[in-house]
Protein backbone atom coordinates (compact mmCIF):
# COMPACT_ATOMS: atom_id res chain seq x y z
CA UNK A 1 0.00 0.00 0.00
CA UNK A 2 1.36 3.44 -0.93
CA UNK A 3 1.89 5.99 1.80
CA UNK A 4 -0.26 9.12 1.64
CA UNK A 5 3.04 10.96 1.44
CA UNK A 6 4.39 8.92 -1.49
CA UNK A 7 4.38 11.98 -3.78
CA UNK A 8 6.66 13.89 -1.42
CA UNK A 9 8.91 10.87 -0.81
CA UNK A 10 9.20 10.42 -4.59
CA UNK A 11 10.11 14.09 -5.07
CA UNK A 12 12.82 13.78 -2.42
CA UNK A 13 14.16 10.60 -4.05
CA UNK A 14 14.26 12.31 -7.45
CA UNK A 15 16.38 15.19 -6.06
CA UNK A 16 18.80 12.70 -4.49
CA UNK A 17 19.04 10.85 -7.82
CA UNK A 18 19.31 14.01 -9.96
CA UNK A 19 21.66 14.10 -12.92
CA UNK A 20 23.93 16.95 -11.81
CA UNK A 21 23.52 20.26 -10.01
CA UNK A 22 21.25 21.96 -12.59
CA UNK A 23 18.86 19.01 -12.72
CA UNK A 24 18.78 18.87 -8.91
CA UNK A 25 18.11 22.62 -8.65
CA UNK A 26 15.20 22.36 -11.12
CA UNK A 27 13.73 19.50 -9.08
CA UNK A 28 14.17 21.50 -5.87
CA UNK A 29 12.18 24.40 -7.39
CA UNK A 30 9.39 22.02 -8.43
CA UNK A 31 9.32 20.38 -5.02
CA UNK A 32 9.15 23.72 -3.18
CA UNK A 33 5.70 24.22 -4.79
CA UNK A 34 4.32 21.64 -2.34
CA UNK A 35 5.33 23.84 0.61
CA UNK A 36 3.82 27.05 1.98
CA UNK A 37 7.21 28.80 2.17
CA UNK A 38 10.86 27.79 1.53
CA UNK A 39 11.46 28.12 5.27
CA UNK A 40 8.86 25.74 6.73
CA UNK A 41 10.37 23.60 9.52
CA UNK A 42 11.51 20.04 8.90
CA UNK A 43 11.83 17.73 11.90
CA UNK A 44 13.78 14.49 11.60
CA UNK A 45 13.03 11.67 14.05
CA UNK A 46 16.17 9.68 14.83
CA UNK A 47 14.52 7.25 17.27
CA UNK A 48 11.15 6.44 18.81
CA UNK A 49 10.75 4.93 22.27
CA UNK A 50 7.50 4.53 24.20
CA UNK A 51 5.70 7.21 22.21
CA UNK A 52 8.62 9.60 22.69
CA UNK A 53 10.51 10.99 19.69
CA UNK A 54 14.19 11.92 19.58
CA UNK A 55 14.91 14.52 16.88
CA UNK A 56 17.93 15.77 14.98
CA UNK A 57 18.49 19.57 14.95
CA UNK A 58 15.46 21.07 13.12
CA UNK A 59 16.10 22.43 9.65
CA UNK A 60 14.13 24.17 6.87
CA UNK A 61 12.75 22.61 3.70
CA UNK A 62 15.17 24.57 1.48
CA UNK A 63 18.18 23.41 3.47
CA UNK A 64 16.86 19.87 3.54
CA UNK A 65 16.31 19.71 -0.23
CA UNK A 66 19.84 21.03 -0.81
CA UNK A 67 21.09 18.41 1.65
CA UNK A 68 19.54 15.70 -0.54
CA UNK A 69 21.26 17.23 -3.57
CA UNK A 70 24.63 17.21 -1.76
CA UNK A 71 24.32 13.75 -0.21
CA UNK A 72 22.76 12.15 -3.29
CA UNK A 73 20.74 9.93 -0.97
CA UNK A 74 17.31 10.04 0.69
CA UNK A 75 17.43 7.82 3.78
CA UNK A 76 14.15 8.89 5.36
CA UNK A 77 10.41 8.70 4.81
CA UNK A 78 7.69 11.23 5.56
CA UNK A 79 6.07 10.46 8.93
CA UNK A 80 3.60 13.35 9.06
CA UNK A 81 2.82 16.69 7.46
CA UNK A 82 0.73 19.68 8.48
CA UNK A 83 -1.02 21.56 5.70
CA UNK A 84 -2.69 24.95 5.35
CA UNK A 85 -6.13 25.58 3.82
CA UNK A 86 -4.55 25.64 0.34
CA UNK A 87 -3.10 22.17 0.85
CA UNK A 88 0.47 23.45 1.08
CA UNK A 89 2.68 21.81 3.69
CA UNK A 90 3.51 24.03 6.66
CA UNK A 91 5.48 21.54 8.79
CA UNK A 92 7.11 18.25 7.84
CA UNK A 93 8.19 15.36 10.03
CA UNK A 94 10.55 12.73 8.62
CA UNK A 95 11.82 9.53 10.17
CA UNK A 96 15.17 7.84 9.61
CA UNK A 97 14.71 4.50 7.80
Amino acid sequence: MQSEFAVIDNQFNSIAAANGVDDANNKIQTTLNYFETPDIPVLIIISQNGGFNDYDRPTTITKFLNYLKDKKAYKYRVESAKKNSSGKITELELITK
Partner: peptide
Amino acid sequence: TQIGGRLIGFWDV
Protein backbone atom coordinates in the same frame (compact mmCIF):
# COMPACT_ATOMS: atom_id res chain seq x y z
CA THR B 1 13.20 24.88 20.53
CA GLN B 2 9.69 26.17 19.82
CA ILE B 3 8.13 25.01 16.55
CA GLY B 4 4.51 25.70 15.70
CA GLY B 5 3.78 26.51 19.34
CA ARG B 6 5.23 23.18 20.52
CA LEU B 7 8.40 22.64 22.51
CA ILE B 8 10.61 20.25 20.52
CA GLY B 9 13.53 18.50 22.22
CA PHE B 10 16.36 17.58 19.91
CA TRP B 11 19.94 16.30 19.93
CA ASP B 12 22.36 18.93 18.67
CA VAL B 13 25.53 17.38 17.26
